[in-house]
Amino acid sequence: MGCYHSKRTKETPGYEEPTVLAAETPFTVSEVEALYELFKKLSSSVIDDGLIHKEELQLALFRNKNRRNLFADRIFDLFDVKRNGVIEFGEFVRSLGVFHPNAPVEDKIHFTFRLYDLRQTGFIEREELKEMVLAILHESDLLLSDDVVETIVDKTFSDADLKGDGKIDPEEWKEFVSKNPSLIKNMTLPYLKDITLAFPSFVLSTEVEDSE
């Protein structure tokens, strides 16, 4: 079974050895191999080329490959470390590692900062926060007057922007998250602790490789 698996993986562009990825992430070798099963499913759902395209992420998240979403776009961009328009296996595992229950909280906080820093200026700016609030209202079919949105954004921003310079820097973000820990709730995926149980058919073959 191990040989069958190895033969297929070597043909996949961007494939990296599970031992290397396990050393750099909170995952064990078996868990990385189980993640490869998930990766194969995701990366073959629209274009069967062993790489995750944006449409494939959208399909997995929304059951609709054409549904655009500001945050799904940002997640895709952050996973696509090489910025070549696709998510490779190594990028997938390293990025998901931040979502592991055992990953450092600092990494989770940093990831959310980058997620919300829409224009990648190194700061979360007021206009970005307003844009995100408006995107959520649109996504949720909720209507709020512009005055109410402005008030919510102002209040949140003044609480987070401790230095009062009109932008939230990484230190201010860290402080704000420490006061509001639910902000990184999405950054922990309990599924990742049981990833080998989620894909039990694969555990049989990984046990052979782990014992080698």
Partner: peptide, 25 residues
């Protein structure tokens, strides 16, 4: 209770909830 815009974003955005990736089995 104070309405925190970031909390609103993180709790409401389906694009920021990756748990559905694991339901593709």
């Amino acid at each position: 209770r104070f309405f925190n815009a970031f909390e609103f974003i993180s709790s409401m955005s389906s694009g920021f909830d990756l748990s559905s990736l694991f339901e593709t089995k």
